[in-house]
Amino acid sequence: MTTATLPQTRVSFRLLAETFLVFGILMAASIACLGWESPARWLVLAGLIVGQGLWLDRMYIAAHEAIHKKLFPDHPALNDALGTLLLLPVAAPFTVYRKIHFFHHGHNRRDAHTANLDTFPTARPLTPLRRGYYHAVWIFFVFLGGFFVHSIAAVLIFLLVPAARAEKISPVFKHWRGSRRLRAWAEFAGGLGFHAAVWWALGFEAWMVALGLPLAVFAWVWSLLLYVYHYDTTVGPDVRHNVRSLPRQRFFSWLLLNFNEHATHHYDPNIPWHQLPDRRDILPEAHHHNQGVTSLWQAVWQQTKGPHIEEIADVGEFSVDLGLMRR
């Protein structure tokens, strides 16, 4: 029996066991490495920190399954509780993640300034200096962890800014009820509490190598990969197809839970991660341009071209999509 044909509950338990076990092993190994008397200690520790940063991305994507209610579809409370637990190390509120991500699926690149991260609308004259500024902002967002900073700002808006004012920033904030805000506060506090507990119990150095520095690696990797499945793809009302898939690469397909099959995920977000390769959706001919890259590395490098800059008479209300949409 292949993974694709296993019952969903069994697959989810296996996924969670693997995800939490590896997280714990990397965390323990990093802390143990602090006391290792060897010239190679710092090299090994650097490898463990990078590995944990990549694994935090795995935990974030495992939580993405819970966002779509696919971990335990018959047990919504358990599904959401485990999704919240997966996000504790990155202190991302599960409720905010779901709200923004659902907006992303419903409005992905609908037009030049709705859920479209690589288009910068401007009502000001586009001088060479302004064009260079926008390009620098994009490079910061993608290659220097800026999208992670952008998402922290989104979380703070969800937590602190009154809904009526937040809606003027982006339609993603519409219908943000007080009960959801309270739940998001509890989830955010849980993440901060997890970090504080590790710091208090094990000390600053242990927290730094087990969580602090890996979180910085996660912020960089997450920003780097955030838009590789949508950069320079089609724009228009057929929002399910404004996306690309990438060829399978064994390590990354395992690490990122088949996220390379992104066109299939957008075509039907209800397909569990382990069934994506067998249920692959082929983009319509009008969207074949989206498949203009042949590897993950090419998709990353393509983003150095910078953003599309559109001069418009009035920017008005537009969605910046606020990062946490997750690819």
Rank of each mutant, 00 (worst) to 15 (best):
L255I: 06
L255E: 02
L256Y: 06
L256P: 00
L256T: 09
L257Q: 05
L257N: 10
L257H: 05
L257V: 10
L257R: 05
N258W: 00
F259Y: 07
F259M: 14
N260C: 13
N260L: 01
N260R: 06
E261T: 04
E261K: 08
H262G: 06
H262A: 04
A263I: 06
A263M: 05
T264V: 13
T264K: 07
H265A: 09
H265K: 06
H266S: 02
D268I: 09
D268P: 07
D268V: 09
P269Q: 07
N270T: 15
I271R: 01
I271V: 14
I271W: 01
I271T: 10
W273V: 08
W273S: 08
W273D: 01
H274T: 03
H274N: 10
Q275V: 01
L276A: 11
P277G: 04
P277H: 06
P277S: 09
P277L: 02
D278F: 06
D278L: 09
D278G: 15
D278N: 11
D278S: 11
R279K: 11
R280K: 14
D281K: 12
D281N: 08
D281G: 06
D281Y: 11
I282H: 10
L283P: 04
P284I: 11
P284N: 11
A286F: 02
A286R: 14
H287C: 07
H287Q: 09
H287E: 05
H287P: 09
H288Y: 13
H289F: 12
H289N: 10
H289S: 13
H289V: 11
N290W: 00
N290K: 05
Q291M: 15
Q291S: 15
G292K: 11
G292I: 03
G292S: 14
G292Q: 12
G292N: 14
V293Y: 01
T294L: 08
T294Q: 11
T294A: 15
S295L: 04
S295E: 04
L296I: 14
W297M: 15
W297S: 14
Q298H: 02
Q298C: 02
Q298W: 01
V300D: 03
V300N: 00
V300T: 01
W301I: 13
W301H: 08
Q303A: 07
Q303R: 08
T304F: 12
K305Y: 12
K305T: 14
K305S: 15
G306N: 03
G306R: 03
P307V: 08
P307N: 11
I309A: 06
E310K: 14
E311P: 03
A313V: 08
D314R: 12
G316C: 04
G316Y: 00
G316T: 08
E317L: 15
E317D: 02
E317K: 04
F318A: 06
F318L: 03
